[in-house]
Write a protein that binds this DNA or RNA. Sequence first.
DNA 1: TCAATAATCGGAATGATTACTATTTATAGA
DNA 2: TCTATAAATAGTAATCATTCCGATTATTGA
Lengths: 131, 131
Amino acid sequence: MITDNQHRKSKQREKILELLQGTQIHPTANWIYDQMKQEFPNLSLGTVYRNLNILVEQNKVKKIIAGSTFDRFEANLGEHCHMICEKCGVITDFEIGIDSSLISQVEENLECKIRHHKFDFFGICKKCRNQ
Amino acid sequence: MITDNQHRKSKQREKILELLQGTQIHPTANWIYDQMKQEFPNLSLGTVYRNLNILVEQNKVKKIIAGSTFDRFEANLGEHCHMICEKCGVITDFEIGIDSSLISQVEENLECKIRHHKFDFFGICKKCRNQ
DNA sequence: TCAATAATCGGAATGATTACTATTTATAGA
DNA sequence: TCTATAAATAGTAATCATTCCGATTATTGA
């Protein structure tokens, strides 16, 4: 049984997706690697990266680029924004009412086709404020 | 005469700022390096990076992180969004009416302090569409 | 079960950025 | 203007996330 027409089943990839679906912390490749080491003692970091890219390609996971030197990933596929704490680095999801006419407004102005968008907020999170 | 309390004047840094202020292409460090090579034959790429970081620190330049493996920079300090073409990589600036109540809405919901935000749109630019 | 070939591991390569050090240059004060 | 101080530079080495590669292992359709 093949999961899709492109890729065979892989225990490692399944575990990566499962880990991403079970956390809110928007992990790095290295965090995933550390979590998996016990179950897959011979795991290679390259395997984590390759499978993350496959999952992104399959639209099961999204890559977050948030000003760090490294990428982070999430399995939350719903429309949402990120608030990135500039002190502790924590990323918090939240939903926001984006006016859908905004997209067509941009498309008309620039005569382009918008496929997706990203709204990020940077600041100091609740926890860091209270310190 | 010192330009600010932190840094002495440097011909290289002045030229970097001048280049950024004179272009719309949101250059990379390497592009700046190439442009400067004739005027500064012994220029070091490290000098470009160090000065770009100083200019960002001085709020004269902004760093753009737009999904590439490398950073890009701009001297357009006004509030604006970016439309990044997923085919050719061109970044186009445009102004958009961001409801200012949006920020306070986020701050209230998450009990955080927002310092800045970034709204990016990804798609296919006018030029690439017509090909 | 078996052949085909995708996925893995381990390590080497890549590429953007930063760090280090000797030398050069800008600046403040005499 | 001259000089001492320390910042800025050039050149190169180091760093670090990510990708690539070749040999081995695992998954799949027949």
